[in-house]
C-alpha cells in the first residue's frame, strides 16, 4: 500500500469532479445561491428592521461577511458528506477510480481538494453578490478568496472524518443537527460571542467557522489586522485532522 500522495493523480480526481459538476452546475448553483440570499433577506432586512446595529454597524452589514463564511463552509461539508458518500457507495465511483493508477490516498486528496475548490467558489459568489448590494467596504475582500480554500479544506476534512465512520447516509442528520448547525448559529455570524455564557463562548472560539467569520469580517470592512492568528489556526486544524481523515477513510474504503 502506497503511503504517499501523488498530487498529479489527485488532480485527475479533481478534474473528474469538475467535468461532472460543469454538467450539473445550472441546477446546483442556483440552489446554493438561494439559501444565503434567504438568510440575508430574513435576518439582514427582516430582523435588521428591529436590530438597528451591532457595535455601530448596520445589522445587514454585520452578518453579510458571515454569510460568505457559512456558504463556503456548507459547500465543502455537503460535498464531503453526501457527495463523497454517494460516490463511495451507491455510484461506486471510487471502485472505478481505484482500478486505475489512482491510489486511495490520491483519491482522498482529490476529494478534499475538490471540496475546498467548491467552497472557495461558493464563497466567491457571495462576495460578488454582497458587493453588488454595496455591503463591502474594501478591496481587501479579494484576499478572502484564497483563504476560503484553506477553510474549505478544514471543513472538507471534518466532513470526511464523519463520512468515514457513518453507518449509513441517514446518519449525516446527526452530524448536521448536533455539530454543523450549532456551529453555524454560535460562531459569531449573527451576533458577537460576548453575549454568550463564557463557557459556550470559549468553545465557539475554537471553531474554524468563528475564525473564518472573523477573517471575512475584517477583510470586508477593510482591516487586515488580527487575521494572522485566525489563518494560523485554520492551518493548524488542517494539519491535525488530515491524518485522521486519511486513516479513517482508507479503512472504510480498502477492505
Amino acid at each position: 500500500m502506497e503511503k504517499t500522495i501523488c498530487l498529479k493523480r489527485a488532480f485527475r480526481v479533481w478534474q473528474r469532479h469538475l467535468t461532472v459538476y460543469t454538467k450539473l452546475y445550472k441546477t446546483s448553483i442556483a440552489l446554493n445561491f438561494v439559501e444565503p440570499a434567504l438568510y440575508l433577506i430574513a435576518f439582514g432586512i427582516g430582523l435588521g428592521a428591529f436590530i438597528k446595529d451591532i457595535n455601530g454597524v448596520p445589522y445587514i452589514k454585520f452578518i453579510a461577511p458571515g454569510i460568505i463564511a457559512s456558504s463556503s463552509m456548507f459547500a465543502a461539508t455537503y460535498e464531503c458528506t453526501y457527495g463523497t458518500y454517494v460516490r463511495m457507495t451507491f455510484q461506486k465511483t471510487f471502485d472505478a477510480i481505484l482500478a486505475t493508477p489512482i491510489n486511495i490516498n490520491d483519491l482522498i486528496a482529490g476529494e478534499l481538494i475538490w471540496a475546498a475548490t467548491k467552497s472557495m467558489f461558493y464563497g466567491t459568489i457571495i462576495i460578488v453578490a454582497i458587493s453588488a448590494f454595496r455591503l463591502v467596504d474594501s478591496p481587501f475582500v479579494i484576499a478572502i478568496i484564497p483563504i476560503l480554500f484553506l477553510s474549505g479544506l478544514v471543513f472538507a476534512e471534518i466532513s470526511m472524518v464523519c463520512t468515514a465512520v457513518v453507518p449509513g447516509i441517514d446518519s449525516f442528520n446527526y452530524f448536521y443537527t448536533l455539530f454543523m448547525t450549532p456551529m453555524f448559529l454560535f460562531s459569531g455570524i449573527f451576533f458577537p460571542l460576548d453575549v454568550l455564557p463564557p463557557a459556550v463562548a470559549k468553545i465557539a472560539f475554537f471553531t474554524p467557522l468563528y475564525h473564518l467569520t472573523l477573517i471575512c469580517r475584517s477583510l470586508v470592512w477593510g482591516s487586515a489586522g488580527g487575521i494572522a492568528g485566525s489563518i494560523a489556526w485554520l492551518v493548524v486544524v488542517i494539519l491535525i485532522i488530515a491524518p485522521l481523515a486519511f486513516i479513517l477513510m482508507r479503512k472504510r474504503i480498502i477492505k
Binding site: R16, T19, V20, Q91, K92, T93, D95, A96, A99
Partner: peptide, 15 residues
C-alpha cells in the same frame, strides 16, 4: 497496465 471490467456497473451516470 491492467484493464478492469467490474461485476457492478460503475460508470459516471452523469456523463
Amino acid at each position: 497496465r491492467i484493464g478492469v471490467m467490474p461485476q457492478d456497473d460503475n460508470l459516471d451516470i452523469e456523463l
